[in-house]
């Protein structure tokens, strides 16, 4: 009998997802193990809220299950998944409009109960600054940088997620990094 670890190595994302589509829902567990961290990282990068990010990761996998019949196996599973992740993120902010009206209490709450955030605080200065700079970027620029990170700079695939050309994605990444650099330098001066 094969162990999950062996399965992880032998099955491609697409093959696994096609199995899920055929009704072998168990196989989604393997995809979950592969992608829970990048997805969590993406949502956390967007919201800085660990609990919310976990909920959103869960939402992504719920949607993958719900819309599994839409997966055709032609494109890349990861691209499809991040497409869903982006929609989940947008839907969440559209519903709650959290980004704009956050109370101080919710921040305190988050700092108090969020182990992940305290881990974050222990990281080195440079990373801390970068995180801060990233947080100060507008949502769309932060999103493109995180997508570039978690999609491992596959600009063509990111273009599929965003619905634009590879060239346009590169320009977006360029602009976002430009701005990140500017914010970063500004923070350095303040320190």
């Amino acid at each position: 009998m094969k162990t999950p670890v062996q399965d992880l190595e032998t099955f491609s994302d697409n093959a696994l997802m096609l199995k899920v589509k055929d009704g072998h829902l168990d196989k989604l567990g393997l995809l979950f193990e592969r992608y829970k961290k990048p997805l969590f990282g993406f949502f956390y990068g967007m919201s800085k809220d660990a609990e919310l990010s976990e909920d959103l990761v869960q939402n992504v996998f719920f949607r993958i299950l719900k819309y599994r019949y839409l997966f055709r196996g032609e494109g890349d599973f990861k691209t499809w998944m991040f497409h869903i992740a982006r929609n989940v993120n947008h839907d969440h902010y559209r519903k709650n409009k959290l980004g704009k009206a956050e109370s101080v209490e919710s921040w305190e709450n988050r700092l108090g109960h969020d182990d992940a955030y305290s881990v974050q605080l222990q990281q080195d200065e440079e990373t801390k600054m970068l995180t801060l700079a990233l947080d100060r970027l507008p949502v769309d620029k932060r999103e493109i940088i995180l997508l570039s990170k978690y999609q491992e700079k596959k600009y063509k695939e990111i273009g599929e997620i965003l619905g634009c050309s590879e060239g346009a994605v590169k320009v977006k990444v360029f602009r976002a990094l430009q701005e990140l650099k500017a914010v970063y330098q500004q923070l350095e001066k303040q320190m």
């Binding site: 956390y44 869960q58 719920f62 299950l65 992940a116």
Partner: peptide, 21 residues
């Protein structure tokens, strides 16, 4: 940015996921 490591999700995520599955 690429090197920058995001925090790990908690065990709750696994529990909730497998419950949903």
């Amino acid at each position: 940015v690429m090197r920058f490591e995001a925090p790990e999700p908690s065990g709750d995520l696994d529990d909730n996921f497998y419950q949903m599955l």
